[in-house]
Nucleic acid binder design. Structure first.
Lengths: 244, 244
DNA sequence: CGAGGCGTTGAGCGAAGTCAACAGCAGTGG
DNA sequence: CCACTGCTGTTGACTTCGCTCAACGCCTCG
């Protein structure tokens, strides 16, 4: 069986699943033979979710995986007494779901409007058995998420409130539009996919602190805010300087 | 080629590499044919490290992977101004190293005395190409680490100082001895593999706070301390109650 | 119009940080 | 042998950052 070259595989910025596989080299689909593509397409379907809709609940049985086509998905965990922590955000073209787990150990919720490409668990797992390349891509995606989680642990553990907020805005600014090249940008305008409460839960802070820090950054000219949700960053570099 | 059953594979509590492969079913070795085992043994070698020795530095080129045979390895990241965060601990039989990365994005240091089974990067990566089962085990290990990292994000972001310290002690108590079954234990005695400074860097706190919280837990009878490093937990259940 | 959700701002408080002193211990060298 | 140094850990006094509580403004929706 023909396989794509190692070089291609090392590119971690690829969707794992993708129903419309025009750009085969960018998807998991790139690892599949034509007949496998047909097989895949028989099982996947695109679904749309409104902001706030729960995609999968804690301790819920995992019945399907998905690929984020557009929008932002929020992953959260809760303590027994209700304290909540957002443990990750997923942007297009991330893979959604915990492979080989009987049940989810976290909740996933649409933060913004979200388009997903869903595939039943059994279908993906049986395709993995026949296509090692598929599993390799899953491994690359998981390694990428582990890297991000570890970066965020530094933010949670060792940064001040204002550094945390700056880091959050920087993360969103550089991930919200998967078509843009981060290197080539200086200023950027975007819509926040999260409420202030969500941001607080992501950063381990309170809403009030978020609000105060945003006001401070606005007064310092690092950001401009329209309509509470639309942000403009005149200099990404200056924002990065505030990330600690 | 014969492969072990899916059921076996789902057991995440297996060493990935293991030079002395007597217990083949427990290692990555279980995925290999006899002639591959011989091939593996030609490349691996066991090394011993004293506490505090650096195993791999930030931005250092990755030349080999390793499996933790005994002891505890501390993974850390640092901010530009020197603030440090411990982003993970690795116990036997964890796999050490970031597959498919050109350079390390973190530092690894022996926290206690550590025995490793090292394998050159090229040797492992070429074996992966011929044995998909090997890659599957790597995926399972990475998923396990991702789960742990996300659990710890909740601790870092949403727990109080005393809950953090309790959570840390609980983590150590339940992981320090890989041969013990957690379910069957109530009381336990163990040596801390980390200094107070390390604990502080793991929990996003200061040494002073660690010290004060430990003193408080000792006065409350949740723990007993001998020689600063040797801890006794009379009731794991009571410790767990303090984890939040 | 009022209700409810989301966001901002202020006043006061408290948990954790900072700074400083000190104790215990291992190593070292006169 | 003891003085000296350096490292780790503890404790106390004081400060401060971020939390709590409360009020209020601004939307949207019914």
């Amino acid at each position: 069986m023909k396989m794509s070259s190692r070089k291609d595989i090392h590119n971690s910025d690829i969707p794992i699943l993708c129903q419309s596989c025009e750009a085969r080299h960018k998807g998991i689909c790139g690892a599949l033979e034509p007949q496998q593509l047909v097989e895949l397409a028989r099982h996947t379907r695109q679904v749309r979710h409104k902001p706030g809709e729960e995609l999968i609940g804690d301790t819920e049985e995992v019945k399907s995986y998905a690929n984020v086509i557009s929008g932002v998905v929020k992953l959260t965990k809760m303590l027994a007494d209700g304290r909540q922590q957002v443990i990750g955000l997923q942007f297009a073209p991330d893979f959604l779901g915990r492979p080989f787990a009987e049940e989810s150990r976290l909740s996933a919720e649409a933060a913004s409007g979200v388009n997903l490409c869903k595939i039943p668990r059994s279908a993906l797992e049986s395709m993995i058995k026949t296509s090692p390349e598929l599993e390799h891509r899953l491994l690359m995606q998981t390694l990428k998420e582990l890297d991000l989680a570890r970066d965020w642990m530094v933010t949670l553990g060792r940064k001040t409130a204002s550094e945390k907020v700056a880091s959050f805005l920087y993360l969103i600014a550089t991930h919200i539009d998967p078509t843009k090249d981060i290197e080539e940008m200086d200023s950027i305008k975007f819509d926040l996919p999260l409420t202030r409460v969500d941001i607080a839960d992501f950063l381990g802070l309170t809403v009030e602190t978020i609000s105060r820090q945003l006001t401070k950054m606005r007064k310092d000219g690092v950001i401009e805010i329209e309509n509470n949700r639309t942000f403009f960053v005149p200099s990404l570099e200056r924002l990065e300087d505030r990330c600690g």
